[in-house]
């Protein structure tokens, strides 16, 4: 079984991707090649921008099952509409109208059980794709990408997890921002969660929300403070008060921010920053040997 690490943050733009990509690279160069990076931010996947050497090795479409109503069999009784908790089905008996909105459908299958007349069948409806990339190893990076206009992020994250390489020693999940269902889906299988925050009131407020979620989900977690040196010290007071492990502090560096902008996250990493990722990797290695 792979050891699964999720990189999360409530607030967007705190540096989830920066931390996930750098941690992946540190583990790959200093520890084991047998690590896979999985980009679960399927609404806005960015990990690949930082690996110019990565080549596509496989691409597949993710489908969801969506019901189609056969109007020649349908009696317009409205039972399926009543069963659908997601308002995806509209039936208007007076004009014999039946339709399904695939963008509302959660593919739960309740309508199939509702229909006693065999009028509903499910068809595949594309909602995004999975792509795997290699940097010379079997399967280094796996990315999920949501089709624009689809609200089915969670399903793509499920498929990503199912397609992750089982034989990897370590899987790193780069999570989406927020605290709702896509984050829960990403984190649910993780053995350890890294929460990335920034030392600002926004960073702290959203960190608190994420810590609440981790506690509710009974996950082991620690914190990485990114852009250290900006903002204020409140986040450190909170970490201390809550007795959470501060795993690393990545200093804010204007020049490095410029490098990030160009997608050059992994070349010329300032030594102070490199050292923090090494510290993080060593922490995880120790943790793995104890878990």
């Amino acid at each position: 079984m792979s050891y699964k690490i999720a990189v999360c943050s409530g607030k967007g733009g705190t540096g989830k991707t920066t931390v996930a990509v750098n941690l992946f690279s540190t583990i790959q160069t200093k520890w084991t090649k047998n690590v896979q990076l999985i980009d679960c931010d399927v609404e806005e996947p960015n990990d690949l921008l930082f690996f110019k050497d990565a080549k596509v090795i496989n691409r597949s479409i993710v489908n969801q099952l969506v019901p189609v109503i056969d109007e020649s069999q349908c009696t317009f009784c409205g039972k399926c509409e009543e069963y659908c908790e997601f308002n995806a089905i509209s039936i208007i008996p007076s004009v014999k109208y039946a339709s399904v909105d695939p963008n509302m459908c959660h593919s739960c299958g309740a309508c199939l059980h509702a229909c006693k007349f065999g009028a509903i069948q499910e068809h595949q409806h594309p909602i995004g794709e999975l792509t795997s990339f290699s940097r010379g190893n079997q399967m280094d990076i796996l990315e999920g990408s949501l089709k624009i206009g689809s609200p089915m992020q969670t399903k793509i994250i499920k498929d990503l997890k199912a397609n992750a390489c089982d034989e990897s020693d370590i899987l790193i999940y780069d999570a989406p921002p927020g605290t709702s269902c896509p984050v829960v889906e990403t984190v649910s299988a993780a053995d350890f969660v890294i929460l990335v925050t920034e030392p600002t009131p926004f960073g702290l407020y959203d960190l608190r929300l994420t810590v609440d979620l981790m506690k509710e989900m009974q996950k082991d977690f620690g914190i990485v403070v990114n852009k250290a040196g900006m903002g204020d010290r409140e986040v450190y007071a909170y970490i201390k008060e809550e007795d959470i492990e501060l795993l690393a502090e990545i200093p804010f560096n204007r020049e490095y921010a410029g490098q990030y902008a160009q997608g050059k996250l992994l070349s010329d990493v300032p030594p102070l920053i490199e050292q923090e990722y090494l510290k993080l990797a060593i922490y995880l290695k120790n943790r793995m040997s104890h878990d």
């Binding site: 806005e44 609200p151 992020q153 927020g178």
Partner: peptide, 10 residues
């Protein structure tokens, strides 16, 4: 608004 392009953004 929220980040992303998924259900909250829509």
């Amino acid at each position: 608004g929220p980040p992303g392009v998924g259900c909250s953004a829509i």
